[in-house]
Every structure is written in structure tokens, then in C-alpha cells.
Simulated assay, not measured.
Amino acid sequence: MPKLIRFYITHVLIGFAVAAAFVAMLLWFNVANLTHLIFTSDVWAVALFMLWFFHGIVFAGVQFGIAVMAMAEKPEDRGPRGGHGVRSEPVPVRVAAEPKRNSILPHRRNHS
């Protein structure tokens, strides 16, 4: 079996195992009365399987993502990066502005 496929299956199985532990804790601590809700149903096995399976999909994806990101090589420390080390100083810029008006509406003259 190729290493990549073995890597994927291993981490997916780890994710499903973590999901099984998570669902077991949900049921043990009876979070939101979930234990009663599942085991008093006539389709409790389907409910329990779906709870484990869908959590397994989420945890397997997270586990595989973490495993892939952990494989990244750390760059060698070659000193400071980003920019050329040139310090820039702010330069004042003059902007011509119109005088402020007292109201938001345009100025109207009274023709009386």
C-alpha cells in the first residue's frame, strides 16, 4: 500500500476513535439529556451510529488536516525577513479643502 494511502487511513481511524471517545463522553455525562433521548427511541442504534459517524467525519478531517500541516518543514533561520530593512518616515501632505458648512443640507437663501 502506498505511504500516502496508509497515512490517510491511519489518521482517519484516529479521528474516528477520538469521535467514539467524544460520543461516549457525551452519553456518559448526559449532555442535553442526549442519553435518554437516544436510548428511549425505538431506533436507538441508528441514532447512535449517526452520532458517531458524523462526528467521526469531522474529527477525521481535523486529525488529517493537523497531521498534514505538521509535516511542513521549518524554514532555516536566515535573519529578519520581510522588507529590505529601509525605514520609512511619514511625509506631511497638504490637501486643499473646502470650508465646512454648518448643516448637512445645501445652503439655501431666503428670497423674501
Rank of each mutant, 00 (worst) to 15 (best):
A45W: 12
H36T: 10
F54Q: 06
I5D: 10
V46H: 00
I9F: 14
H111E: 13
A17E: 04
A67Y: 01
L27A: 01
F54K: 00
F39S: 09
R101G: 12
E76T: 13
W28Q: 13
N33S: 12
M25A: 06
P90C: 09
L37M: 12
A19K: 00
A72F: 02
F53I: 11
V43L: 10
P99S: 00
M50Q: 09
A32R: 05
E73I: 07
S112C: 13
V93L: 06
V86D: 09
S112G: 13
G61N: 09
Q63R: 14
I104T: 10
P2Q: 14
T40K: 12
F39H: 09
M25C: 05
P99L: 02
L26I: 01
K3F: 14
A47G: 14
F29Y: 15
A96I: 14
L34T: 06
A47S: 07
A47Y: 14
H107A: 12
V91A: 04
M50P: 06
A97I: 13
G79H: 04
W44E: 10
A32S: 12
G61F: 14
V31C: 03
G61K: 06
P80F: 09
R94C: 08
L34W: 12
V46M: 08
F7G: 04
E73R: 06
L4P: 13
I38P: 01
Q63E: 05
G15Q: 02
F49E: 03
T10P: 08
A96Q: 11
P99C: 01
R78E: 00
V18A: 01
E76V: 15
A21Y: 00
V43G: 06
H111N: 11
L13F: 06
R94P: 04
F59C: 06
V12Y: 14
V58C: 01
E89W: 11
V43W: 10
V23N: 00
L26T: 00
Y8K: 12
W44F: 11
N30M: 11
M25W: 04
I57G: 15
T35E: 10
A20L: 07
R81I: 03
R81N: 05
W52L: 15
N33Y: 14
G85Y: 03
A47H: 14
F39I: 08
I57L: 14
K3S: 10
E73N: 10
V86Y: 02
H55Y: 07
A32E: 08
G85V: 01
P106F: 14
H55Q: 06
A24E: 10
H55R: 07
A67M: 04
V62F: 04
V58P: 01
I57W: 11
R101H: 15
E89V: 08
V91N: 04
V43K: 15
F53H: 13
F29E: 14
S88N: 04
E73S: 05
M25E: 07
M25F: 04
F64P: 05
F59M: 04
S103F: 15
I9V: 13
R78F: 02
P90N: 07
G79W: 03
I104Y: 03
N30S: 12
A32V: 05
S88H: 10
Y8G: 11
I38T: 02
